[in-house]
Amino acid sequence: MYTAKHAILYRHKVHDGRAIVFYMDVRAGGKGYDEFVRRAIEADGAEYVRGRVSRIYRRADGKLIVRGADTLAGQAVTIEADLVVLADAIVPRAGGNELAQMLGIAYDTNGFYSEAHPKLRPVETATAGVFLAGACQSPKDIPDSVAQASAAAAKALGLFSNPELEREPIVARVNEQMCVHCRACIKACPYGAIEDYDIKDRKGNVVRTVARVNEGVCQGCGTCVAVCRSNSIDLDGFTDEQILVQIATLE
């Protein structure tokens, strides 16, 4: 889209100039995007050549020479150019992964932040109170970024509009008598809700260290319950005994 926009602007400024775009596939998936590309080609005279550029070099007289291939015509193409512009891809900023790990939110293989659910929770993350807006989630144009920012702001206002913060009552609890402090739950928790806790005697000496759940951060996903080696973690309302009783009732 930005390439088509630049081609249109160039044609408006330089009426006798040629705007040539080498491409392999034009992906214009947004509302009115395909029409915008067609306008650049049909109304503004941008020339789209399907093929790859093989070489760019500067001639002795200062002209840039672009060599490529037109795969539709099946022939080599050589163009004398005054200016060559590379259409770069949008990539996440450096250090974004460290911020995601600090906030406890997920990110994909490309480094863009992941939403909690693409349809039901498109601006929310796995961490409560952290919302997404703009190109941190994926490449977006200005209208999409504004729309998502409005949705994220509405979600944030929804939190501040209540005198008390409501949350799900299902949280994990550690039986400190059974905990062997293997730290498997701490490593597995996607929200960073489990931390080391030192049990001390009356003199303040550390007797043993166990895992303890921060109830304000825990989202009740049950990951820690599944990885606990000593079977010392349960979810409120979903202990093994309660689940077995429910199964027996169904039978």
Rank of each mutant, 00 (worst) to 15 (best):
F131W: 04
A126S: 14
D144H: 11
P118L: 06
G104T: 00
D34W: 15
A94H: 14
Q75Y: 06
L64F: 09
P143I: 12
A76E: 15
D44M: 05
R50Q: 11
Y33M: 09
F36D: 08
A28D: 01
G134F: 08
D82R: 13
Y23E: 03
G104I: 02
V26T: 12
L83W: 03
R50I: 07
D108H: 00
L120N: 05
V123G: 02
I20G: 00
A135S: 13
P143N: 01
N97W: 10
Y23D: 05
A94R: 13
S54C: 10
I90M: 13
F131Q: 07
R18A: 12
I79N: 08
M102W: 02
E80S: 09
L103F: 03
L120V: 07
T71V: 15
R18V: 09
I41C: 06
R93E: 15
D88R: 12
V37H: 03
I90E: 11
A133G: 01
G96D: 05
F22A: 06
R67A: 09
R39W: 03
R52N: 05
S114P: 08
R55D: 13
A73Y: 06
I90F: 09
D108S: 02
A135E: 10
E42I: 15
K63C: 14
V53M: 02
S145G: 06
A19K: 03
F22P: 03
G104A: 07
G104V: 02
D61F: 11
A19W: 00
V84H: 11
D44R: 00
A28T: 04
R67E: 15
F36W: 03
L120H: 00
D70I: 07
Q75F: 06
G30H: 01
R18D: 13
G29P: 09
A81V: 02
V26D: 07
Y33A: 12
A100T: 06
